[in-house]
Amino acid sequence: MSERPFLQVIKGDATPEEVAALIAVVSARATAPAAAPARRGSVWTDRSRLVRGPVQAGPGAWRASALPR
């Protein structure tokens, strides 16, 4: 296994303090817990089901208005 540096300054002249700050940020980001996936609620508790749909005019519309969506 070759001993190569993990980070390398390609352009410019970074001070030891700047390199230390960069390593601190990268290591903090690497150890941060992953965000929990968005939890989807049950279809029964979905409030968007309460929103009324558009009114459809035409033959049989009164019968279709009483049927579940």
Rank of each mutant, 00 (worst) to 15 (best):
A28Y: 01
T31F: 04
V55R: 15
T45Y: 02
W62R: 00
A24M: 08
S2W: 00
R49F: 06
A35S: 13
P5Q: 08
G60V: 02
P16Y: 02
Q56K: 10
R52N: 03
S42H: 03
V19I: 15
A14H: 11
G53Q: 15
I23P: 01
R4S: 01
A61R: 01
P68S: 04
W44P: 00
E17H: 06
Q8L: 07
P54C: 10
Q8E: 09
V25L: 12
R39N: 03
T45K: 04
T15A: 07
R47F: 04
P37N: 04
A64I: 01
R49V: 06
E17S: 07
Q8S: 05
R69D: 10
A64V: 02
D46Y: 11
V25Y: 13
V9K: 13
R47W: 07
A64G: 06
A34D: 11
L50T: 13
P33W: 02
A24S: 13
G12V: 00
V25F: 12
P59Y: 12
G12C: 00
R63D: 08
A64F: 05
T15V: 00
D46E: 14
G60C: 08
L7R: 10
R39W: 01
A24I: 02
L7D: 07
V19L: 15
P59T: 10
D13N: 10
R52T: 03
Q8D: 05
A61S: 06
L67V: 13
A35F: 06
P54K: 14
G53P: 12
A20R: 12
Q8C: 05
T15W: 04
P68Y: 01
E18A: 14
V51M: 08
V9Y: 11
P54L: 14
R47G: 04
V19Q: 15
W44I: 01
S65R: 09
E3F: 04
E17L: 06
S48N: 12
M1V: 11
G58Y: 04
T31K: 09
P5E: 05
P37M: 03
A30T: 09
E3I: 09
R39H: 06
P54M: 13
V55M: 14
G60P: 03
L67N: 09
A57S: 03
I10V: 12
A30L: 10
R4Q: 03
Q56T: 05
T45W: 03
L7N: 07
A61E: 00
R4P: 00
K11W: 12
A34V: 08
W62Y: 00
R29L: 14
